[in-house]
Design a protein around this nucleic acid. Structure first.
Length: 563
RNA sequence: UGGGGUGUAGCCAAGUGGUAAGGCAGCGGGUUCUGAUCCCGCCAUGCGUAGGUUCGAAUCCUACCACCCCAGCCA
């Protein structure tokens, strides 16, 4: 992944600036989450971009918590966000900051604006301010308080901070242009009264700066050179620049916008995610069905796969909706190389090898990775009674079904070829077990037989297998854009998880964090619920399944024939 | 119809006046003791539309169309 270095318009812009001498000195970026929720796949794009761009240019990146609104934010999110960024593979060294670290400087900057007659205290109500702002097509009009003197503004602003007024009584506004076609420039609010204690600054402040004011100046204070954010802030850039023009900090950052990542069938709205978590619709912020970084970690997605995915989707200004298949491809590619192979049966069907000695147990040798011999082999117990996958047997099988059927033969992976002789059913006609016979000449690796058989299936020895709980996940939503519906509950997939009691090979140990269960998919120990007594696995992703595709096509053909 | 953006294949995405990269998906074939992996091949006379400039246009010009964002004392 390192050799095919992805470039994009932002990296090109920075490279050009450096090449032409327009930009001198280190490249400094920042990732500025608001600590009011967990990070999700959309944030991963921003993290990879901001940290990546700085790394590539030997610069550095600030992890800055944008904590300007104490009503919505809390410390627990701060810790979760730090954990997630670290897990994704990035570190901020000494560059961990908060917008609240700059509250004093921000306050001084506000005073400066007042002194320059570029800010004023407005005493209109929120409702009135909205009316005065005008609409998209009509200009706004000046507040009656717009002409207050410096002295009066200074006095009022200082008393706002001193706690003399209630929330909402006054605000501080930038004095720009009420008739600007850009609504952000119609005297935006830059400070509001919030008599609430702040997670970092306690009760020191009765007023808190707004995003537009705090963000650009924090960038400037930190020496950020490139402030990379998402498209919805494009209209705010003139305001971002206006503050810099007025206050002239020694460092002048530049804002550049890119489109956010939208992943099909995933929800990336913090507000809606919070709803699902608080209502208990999902099992916390780290529910493996969620596209949160915590959820993906618990599901078993390798962080390197997520980084690879982000590199593949690129950075542009175009609205996009990335198909799940791209993410799954990155995960499979990573795990195909990384994960050792094991055998497990999700929905067990018992088979009895009738010509195999009753008390006998032997071991067969299984390779741990088909293309990485250095990962070695393991021994698997084989005996008379085995579990195979229910779906690997069909009583009335189509021609192309290469698995077990009455009278048919199949290879047991790493072991023998068997034939199905009898199908045993209970009184209600359900298949309860299969009687098979094996060919002792066909043991894997014996070299004594060149018999070939079309199908190979996985199995575990019934008397040696361990039980495990396995959670088979499917997408949480039934529609590609769950965020576009105001009601998050409406498009939930009722079958987003199926819990099965699986039979797993005994050599599986707790060290095997992520493994491939042969022919099934990649699975990962559940870091929360796993125990020595009852192993718990999450299915990360299935293997590609061309048999499923054949079945789908067969169904389509028969549907066409019937219509 | 005030401002700001974006239109290249089913989904992403290169391309910066010289004749449409790549990935994912899909399709066809080969290898295989995982219907996995791996390998090979196919997949835009076309770049939102219509004009124009040019020997030559996805790239430049003009007009139009579609979609996204903005009217928090949220970020």
């Amino acid at each position: 992944m390192t050799e095919n270095e992805k470039t994009d318009f932002i990296r090109q812009m920075i490279a050009d600036d450096i090449a032409t001498g327009r930009h001198i000195g280190p490249v400094v970026t920042r990732f500025p989450p608001e600590p009011n929720g967990f990070l999700h796949i959309g944030h991963a794009k921003s993290i990879c971009l901001n940290f990546g761009v700085a790394e590539e240019n030997n610069g550095r990146t600030f992890l800055r918590f944008d904590d300007t609104n104490p009503c919505k934010e809390s410390e627990e999110y701060v810790e979760a966000i730090k954990h997630d960024v670290r897990w994704l593979g990035f570190n901020w060294e000494g560059s961990l900051t908060h917008a609240s670290d700059y509250f004093d400087q921000l306050y001084d900057s506000a005073i400066q604006l007042i002194n320059m007659d570029k800010a004023y205290v407005d005493s209109l109500s929120a409702e009135e301010i909205r009316k005065y702002r005008g609409t998209l097509t009509e200009v706004g009009k000046d507040s009656p308080y717009r002409g207050r003197s410096r002295e009066e503004n200074l006095d009022l602003f200082q008393r706002m901070q001193a706690g003399e007024f209630a929330d909402g009584e006054h605000v501080l506004r930038a004095k720009i242009d009420m008739s600007s076609p850009n609504i952000n420039l119609r005297d935006p609010t830059i400070y509001r009264i919030r008599k609430i204690s702040h997670q970092n600054t306690g009760d020191k402040w009765n007023i808190y700066p707004m995003y537009d004011f705090a963000h650009g100046l924090s960038d400037a204070f930190e020496g950020v050179t490139h402030s990379l954010c998402t498209l919805e802030f494009e209209d705010h850039r003139p305001l971002y620049d206006w503050f810099l023009d007025q206050l002239k900090p020694t460092n002048r950052p530049r804002q550049t916008e890119f489109s956010r990542l939208n992943l099909a069938y995933a929800l990336t709205s913090k507000r809606k995610l919070t709803t699902l978590v608080e209502e208990g619709v999902v099992d916390g912020w780290d529910d493996p069905r969620l596209a949160t970084l915590a959820g993906m970690r618990r599901r078993g997605y390798p962080p390197a796969a997520i980084r690879d995915f982000i590199a593949r989707v690129g950075v542009t200004k175009k609205e996009n909706l990335i198909e799940m298949g791209v993410l799954e491809n990155s995960i499979r590619e990573n795990l195909n190389y990384e994960a050792e192979r094991r055998m497990a049966v999700m929905k067990p069907l018992k088979i009895v090898i009738t010509n195999y000695p009753d008390e006998k147990t032997e071991t067969v040798t299984a390779i741990n990775h088909p293309s990485r011999p250095e990962l070695g082999t393991r021994e698997l117990p084989f005996s008379r009674e085995l579990w195979i996958e229910e779906s690997d047997f069909m009583e009335e099988a189509p021609r192309k079904f290469f698995r077990l059927k009455p009278g048919g033969e199949v290879r047991l992976r790493f072991a023998y070829i068997i034939r199905c002789d009898d199908v045993i059913k209970n009184d209600s006609g359900q298949i309860i077990e299969l009687h098979c016979s094996y060919d002792p000449e066909t043991r894997s690796g014996s070299g004594s037989s060149d018999r070939r058989v079309k199908g190979t299936i996985h199995w575990v020895s019934a008397q040696h297998a361990h039980s495990a709980e396995v959670r088979l996940y499917d997408r949480l939503f039934t529609v590609p854009q769950p965020g576009s519906d105001p009601d998050v509950h409406k498009n939930l997939n009722p079958n987003s998880v199926e819990v099965v009691k699986a039979q797993i090979e005994p050599s599986l140990s707790v060290q095997d964090r992520s493994v491939q269960f042969e022919r099934l998919g990649y699975f990962s120990l559940d870091i929360v619920d796993h125990s020595q007594e009852l192993p718990v696995f999450n299915r990360i992703v299935t293997l590609r399944d061309s048999w499923a595709k054949i079945e789908r096509q067969a169904v389509m053909i028969s549907n066409q024939a019937n219509s």
